[in-house]
Structures are given as C-alpha cells and as structure tokens.
Amino acid sequence: MATNAADASVSNALQPGTRAPEFSLLAAPGQPVTLSELEGPVVLIFYPADWSPVCSDELSMFESANGLFSDRGAQLVGIAVDSVWSHVAFKAERRLNFPLLADFHPKGEVGRSYGVYRDQDGTTERALFVLDAEHDIAWSHVSPIGISPGVDGALRAVEALS
C-alpha cells in the first residue's frame, strides 16, 4: 500500500522521556493486564485490527523475535480496539505467545492516552512504544498504516536500555 501524506505526517504519539500512561485492559475474559504490574521493560505494539494481513505479518514477526526480547527481560504486549473475543480467537489461530489487550470499552481510550488513536478510522495507529523498567517511554515509532514496521527498531531500543 502506498504511503500517503496523512500517514506520513508526524503524529501525536507520546515521545521518549514521557511517563507511560497507566492502563488495565482485558487479555481474555476475566483476565486484566495492568501496566504497573508488569515487571521490566515492556514493548507496546498498537495495531489497527485483528485479522488484517499487515497486522498478522507484524505480529508474526514479533512472535519470531519474542525470544530476543525475553533474553533482555522485555515483555511484548499487543493492543487493538477489537473485543476480547476477537483477540482470543486471533491469538489462538496465529499461535501468538504474548497478550493481546482489548482497548474496547471505552473504545480506544488507551490508544488516545498514548496519542495514537485515529478518529477518522476508529482504530489506533500502527505504533510501537518501548518502555524502560520504570515504565518511562524510551522510544516510540509510528508506521504508515499499510506498512508493517518490522521488529528491528524496537529490538535496538530494548537493547539500548541496558
């Protein structure tokens, strides 16, 4: 997909040095994940939607790299506005071993707090945030919506933390 001007423009994504906003979202029915309860560095992977081809590639690449992140004590966390039921099915079908959190109600509230909600689409940007062990934002990146970002930038950012 071609990059258009709106995609390429600088977003309002929170920048390095900012405190990562707290959240508590469901990973599965009855299973909330709360940021402040996660230990060590965290990689937040905001993606537009379960099941879309680009998102599937993106998350598969993170799954392939999961071991390289866990070697550094970093945890991967996916976030999208789909419901928890969609996430559960998507995670099982793609055999992903990291949580996918439902930013579903109020819709996109966490995405908004990180500055990556797209009002025009009702989804979030394709955005990555690397949080250090204190959960300050160490690195952030917003990709064109149609291009999977790859894992290299987030991995370098995590490796630069230590």
């Binding site: 680009v54 590639d57 993106e58 598969s60 690449m61 392939s64 790299a65 390289l68 291009i147 999977s148 970002p149 790859g150 894992v151 290299d152 930038g153 991995l155």
Partner: peptide, 13 residues
C-alpha cells in the same frame, strides 16, 4: 538467518 532478518527489519514474508 531469522535473527539477521529480524535485525534488518524484515516485516513479513
């Protein structure tokens, strides 16, 4: 190969 791909920014297949 997988690691060099990840580090090079491979973003799908």
């Amino acid at each position: 190969d997988v690691e060099s791909g990840i580090r090079s920014g491979v973003n799908g297949t």
